[in-house]
């Protein structure tokens, strides 16, 4: 490693580390300056202690939440991307689907959660269903614009090669729309975490949402905060996974 590379790494680490230190410092100041009682705002060290003491439970519940997120997210992508393609390709399909899509889009998804619970029972299904509902529209809409963005004249070229519809789809449309599909998926990760935790608030006996509900019910603020931080980490992990697959799948893009 050259000096320059070492410096790049140091500089890249400096920002996040400084931010964390600043947040902890402000936290400490607020607590001491305003004399906020411990049971409302614990100190960073108490949160740390709660994390260490409950590391097993935190891990298990984070994994449970991750599972419903991944399941709901994958189903969402698998349904939304082909649907976007059909909508862009077939006009009758667009007319068929658009009214429904617009109505569904404006229904606040979180209030559907109790309904899902009634319909789908307890377990992974209703929670993943909510994740799917919340992630579906960003992915669908971005995919539609991705498929639309492709320069139609490229199909003059592929037609002159004798390409079939399927070949056009796999060689041109999918990779061409990929950057937009990923933009939609990145937006959707935020909704995915919100959706999963909301579902766990409403009806669940495991997961980070359940843990937050339990701990705050017990007025155990250190553990509540520890679980909130875990949920944030969950989002960070999802985003990182998204960035990594983006680099892997789209080497032609300029990645930061």
């Amino acid at each position: 490693m050259t000096m320059k590379q070492v410096w790049t790494i140091v500089l890249n680490l400096f920002g996040p580390v400084a931010t964390v230190i600043a947040v902890l410092a402000i936290w400490k100041c607020i607590e001491q300056g305003w004399h906020i009682p411990r049971y409302l705002l614990p100190t960073p060290s108490e949160v740390y202690a709660a994390t260490v003491a409950n590391v097993g439970a935190l891990w298990r519940n984070t994994a449970a939440t991750m599972e419903i997120i991944v399941f709901g997210f994958v189903v969402s992508v698998v349904v939304a991307v082909p649907l976007a393609f059909l909508i862009v390709t077939f006009h009758f399909f667009e007319r068929l689907c658009y009214p429904l899509i617009i109505i569904l889009q404006f229904i606040p998804k979180t209030i559907v959660a109790p309904l899902l619970l009634v319909w789908l029972g307890i377990g992974v299904l209703p929670k993943s269903a909510l994740v799917m509902l919340m992630t579906f529209f960003p992915i669908l809409l971005e995919s539609i614009s991705g498929f639309r963005l492709i320069d139609k004249r490229i199909f003059y070229i592929t037609q002159s090669m004798g390409a079939s519809r399927a070949e056009e789809f796999f060689f041109v449309r999918i990779p061409g729309a990929m950057p937009s599909i990923f933009a939609g998926m990145k937006t959707a990760t935020v909704y995915a975490v919100t959706g999963a935790i909301t579902a766990e608030f409403i009806g669940s006996n495991e997961g980070i949402g359940y843990m937050i509900l339990q701990a705050s019910g017990d007025l155990d603020m250190p553990l509540t905060l520890a679980a909130v931080i875990a949920s944030a980490l969950l989002g960070v992990i999802l985003s990182a996974a998204m960035l990594a697959s983006e680099k892997l799948l789209m080497p032609w893009m300029e990645h930061r």
Partner: peptide
Amino acid sequence: RPMTDVGIVFQDHLLLEFRT
């Protein structure tokens, strides 16, 4: 039907940005 024993070049290159 579209001619296939042919090569076509347009004013814009119309290359696929995701392929080398």
